[in-house]
Write a protein that binds this DNA or RNA. Structure first.
Lengths: 301, 301
DNA sequence: CAAGGTTATGCATTTTTTGCATGACCGGAT
DNA sequence: ATCCGGTCATGCAAAAAATGCATAACCTTG
C-alpha cells in the first residue's frame, strides 16, 4: 500500500469526482481511477459507490476516511520527527495558504491582526489551493487561508470546518506601464494582432478565476498565450518586463502600481471579486487558537 | 512511501542484517538495500548506521522504529475495519505461530491448557517463523508460539518481550513404513545410490534445523533433494507416499507412527531437540491474558 | 432519447523495481 | 600486514508496474 493512495482517496472524498481529483493530483483520470482501485483491492472492500454521479462513499469508505486521515497524519508526524524537525514553539500556528496569498495578502493581514491581538508566532505552508485544503484536512495545519468564489467553491464540510471571511480581493488585468501611465497592452486586443497573454497553468485556482473574468465581461477578446505558470508572482514579473497582460490579485500589485511599473490593462468589466477566507477545524483547537479565532470573528463583525 | 518499506525496516531492526532480512523478505539483498534507502530518502534521514557490522540504528532510526510499528498497526487495523472484519469477541487471544505448530502442537497444547485453566477463545495466525515474530512486534497478535534453538535464536528483545518454555520437540528423519515396520529409506544412504530427500525451503526455520541435525551426527550422508516445501505437513504427505526421507517434528508424526505409515529413518544421532516457546509483550496485557500467563508460568514451573 | 458529462478498459510507452554480477569495505584470522 | 569470509553498495540489463492516450461503456439531465 502506498501513502500516495491515501492522498488520492482524500482528494476524491473532497471532490467526489475522479476526473477532477485526477487533475488536481496531476495524473490522468484512468491512472487515478486505477490507483483508487488499487487502494480498494488492498483494503479488500469498495470505498466508492460508482453507480451514480456524483459518486458516494460506501459505508466502508466512510469508516476508512477517518483512518486515512489519521494514517497520513501519523506518517507525516513520523517523518517530521525522524528528520529531527524542531517541534513548533508553544502557541505557534501553522498556516496553509496558496503561494500568492503567502506573498501578498498574508504579511499585511498578519501585521494588522497582531496590531489588535498581540504577537502571533506562525509557520507558513505555501502550496497551491488544493494542497492547502488537503493539508487542513490531514491535520497538517491549524488554519487555512484561501480564495473563495461561488463558481469555484472550496469543498470543506461546514459541519467539520468553520470559516471566517477576511476580505475581498479583486483579480484584474495588468500590463507594464508605458509612457504617460498608459499600459503597453490593453484588453480586448485586436483580431489582427492578439495581445500577448500571461496565463495561469490550467489547474491553478486563479486560472479558473481569470477565465471567469474574461467570460463575465461578455466581450470578445483577442489573446495569444505566450507564457504559463501557476504562481501570480511569476506572471507579475513577466508583466513588468513587458511580456504581456496578466490577471493579478490587487494585493500583489499595490507597490507596482504606485511605482508605475504596472498599469490596469482593461475596463472594470474585466474583474472578478474573490473572497479571502480563513478556515479551521471546529474540534480540537488550542486555547491560543481559540482566543485568536474569537478575536478574528469579533474584528470581522 | 510504501507500507512494504516499513515491514522491511522492522525486519531489519530484528535481524540487524541486510542480507538476512532480504532473504526473509524474499527479495535479493540489493533490492532490499535499495528499499531501505528509499525509506530513508522519503524520511530525509538515515535510519541505519552501516559503518560497522552488525549494523546499528541511528538515533533517527531508534525514534522512527516505534512510529513504524504504530503506523503498520494502524494500517492493519484500518484495513480490518474497512473489511468489516468481526472484531474479536471479548477475551479472545490472538496467537501467531508457524504452520507446523498450528497443525500439530497447538491443538493438543490448547486442550491441555484449557483442562487446567478453563476455556480460551483463540484466533490463530499461521505463517512462517519470521512473519510470526513480526506479527508480535507489530502488535498483530497477543501471543507468539515458535521454535527456539541456540543456533537459530528468535530475535526478540528480552526487555520488551517475556517468554515461557512450553516443551521440547525433536526433529528426526522419517520415511514411509515398509514391510515389518522397516523404513523404506534409511540414513545415511549410499554414495552409489543417494537417498531421495524431502527438504525444507532454504529460508524456512526448520531448514536450518534439519541442516543442524545432519551436521550434529558427524557422519557423511548421501542425499539427493527431490522435493522442497516450507511446511512440514507438505513434506509429511510426500514421505507417506514414499517419495523419500524428511525431517519432521515429533508432534507431527504421532498418528502416522502408530498407524505404521511412517517409520524413523535414522539413528538417534540424527536428531535435533528444539524448544517450543511462547512469547508475549511485557506491557499492555489484558487481565485475561495476564491470568492465563500466570497459569502457564505456574504450570511450567 | 439525445447530449454532455462521467468512469472503465485495451494497448503501447514510459518509468520503476528487481536480479545478477561484481565492486568496495569491514573485522578477525593467520 | 595481508588474506579471507563475510558484509553492503553499485552498474547494468531484464522484468514488472504505472502511466497516458484513445475509446468504450455508462449515467444524468434536459
Amino acid at each position: 500500500m502506498e501513502i500516495k493512495w491515501l492522498e488520492d482517496f482524500l482528494s476524491l472524498v473532497e471532490t467526489r469526482s475522479f476526473s477532477r481529483s485526477a487533475e488536481l493530483r496531476h495524473v490522468t483520470q484512468p491512472a487515478f481511477s486505477r490507483r483508487i482501485r488499487a487502494l480498494e483491492a488492498w483494503l479488500g472492500a469498495d470505498l466508492i459507490d460508482r453507480t451514480s454521479y456524483p459518486t458516494r462513499l460506501t459505508p466502508a469508505g466512510e469508516k476508512f476516511h477517518s483512518h486515512a486521515v489519521a494514517l497520513l497524519a501519523a506518517a507525516v508526524a513520523a517523518r517530521a520527527e525522524a528528520r529531527g524537525e524542531t517541534p513548533l514553539a508553544r502557541d505557534t500556528l501553522r498556516f496553509a495558504l496558496p503561494h500568492t496569498l503567502a506573498l501578498t495578502f498574508f504579511p499585511r493581514w498578519l501585521a494588522q491582526v497582531e496590531a489588535g491581538f498581540g504577537p502571533v508566532a506562525s509557520r507558513l505552508i505555501a502550496t497551491n489551493v488544493h494542497d492547502a485544503v488537503l493539508t487542513l484536512v490531514e491535520g497538517g495545519c491549524d488554519l487555512l487561508i484561501c480564495y473563495h468564489h461561488p463558481r469555484q467553491p472550496v469543498q470543506l464540510d461546514p459541519a467539520r470546518y468553520e470559516m471566517l471571511p477576511l476580505g475581498v480581493e479583486s483579480l484584474r488585468p495588468y500590463a507594464a506601464c508605458g509612457k504617460g501611465g498608459v499600459p503597453r497592452f490593453q484588453l480586448p486586443g485586436r483580431a489582427a494582432q492578439p495581445l500577448p497573454y500571461l496565463a495561469y497553468s490550467p489547474n491553478a485556482y486563479l486560472s479558473r478565476m481569470a477565465e471567469l473574468a474574461l467570460e463575465n465581461a461578455q466581450r470578445r477578446v483577442y489573446l495569444r498565450t505566450v507564457y504559463e505558470t501557476d504562481m501570480a508572482e511569476g506572471l507579475k514579473v513577466m508583466a513588468i518586463e513587458g511580456h504581456g497582460v496578466a490577471f493579478l490579485p490587487a494585493s500583489a500589485v499595490i507597490r507596482e502600481l504606485k511605482q508605475k511599473q504596472l498599469a490596469l490593462a482593461g475596463a472594470p468589466a474585466w474583474a472578478v471579486e474573490m473572497e479571502v477566507r480563513i478556515y479551521r477545524e471546529r474540534q480540537g483547537a488550542s486555547p491560543f487558537l481559540e482566543r485568536l479565532w474569537r478575536h478574528l470573528a469579533a474584528a470581522g463583525a
